[in-house]
Amino acid sequence: MNANPVGGDSAPRKEGVAFGLQVWLLTGRFLGNAIRQPAVILPNLGISIFFLIVYYGSFGDSPAIVQLTGGNYLNFVLPVTVLFASISGGAAGLTLVEDLESGYFRRQLSMPLSRTAMVLSAMLLGAIQVTFEAILIIALGLVLGADPAAGALGLLALLFFSLLWGLGFAGYSVATGLLTGNARAAQSATFIFFPLLFLAPVFLPFDQLAPWIQAIARVNPTTYMLEGMRSLMIDGWELWPLAKALIAGAAFALVTLIWAVRVAIRKTSRA
């Protein structure tokens, strides 16, 4: 009880903290909390690994399918399981719902923090979780016999795409979490992921899909992300599929970021 609460030799910056430092510090808090609860990502990681093993076990030895999918079914299906891991980005929304419920979100709003930084840091948490899972899945794929045509650098590019996709998915989950303020509702909203994923060339190349699925897949950003990742695994460094994947991933992340920030601003009508 002897400290001076207002005086003292250390003082805060009058002009506030730079946006980048806010994002860094807030993301660090989210990551610290996530590391203390590793079990949160285990179910989704388990499902992704399960799909990899089951798909590979089911189709990997079928000569017709192997021929259709470029010679190594593992190379074809690995990006699918990496995208499955994107659902982990949903943890970002749940994290923000926890902050809403504990009152910590409001505490942050009363501080001189950018709402964009608050939203972006939660999205980065989701993206980092997705990337971490992608690393484990790719490592398992390599052990099983995946052979990326673009080499080790191609795998880094694959991870970059998974981070971008995770960022977009996390933005969606943050927006739904803020909209509903309810953990169960936010979690339910992540199920939109399944139609997005399955209405894309998941098990077969695009030209092998039924015409009605092709029509949907053509406007589904998942298609371009998946084909960009696959091109790294099967064809090597092909500019056009990679450019389309980059555009689809960046657009998805940007749209969901803008949406999440708008929701945050609308839900928090601070002066």
Binding site: P12, R13, V17, R29, G32, R36, R107, S110, M111
Partner: peptide, 26 residues
């Protein structure tokens, strides 16, 4: 300090104060 405390239950007490000090520009 509002009616419902706004604290992150996952953080340590000291860690939270240090984080807030950094966020205020210390």
């Amino acid at each position: 300090a509002l009616q419902d405390t706004g604290l992150d239950p996952m953080q340590k007490g000291g860690g939270l104060l240090e984080l807030h000090a950094r966020l205020f520009g210390f």
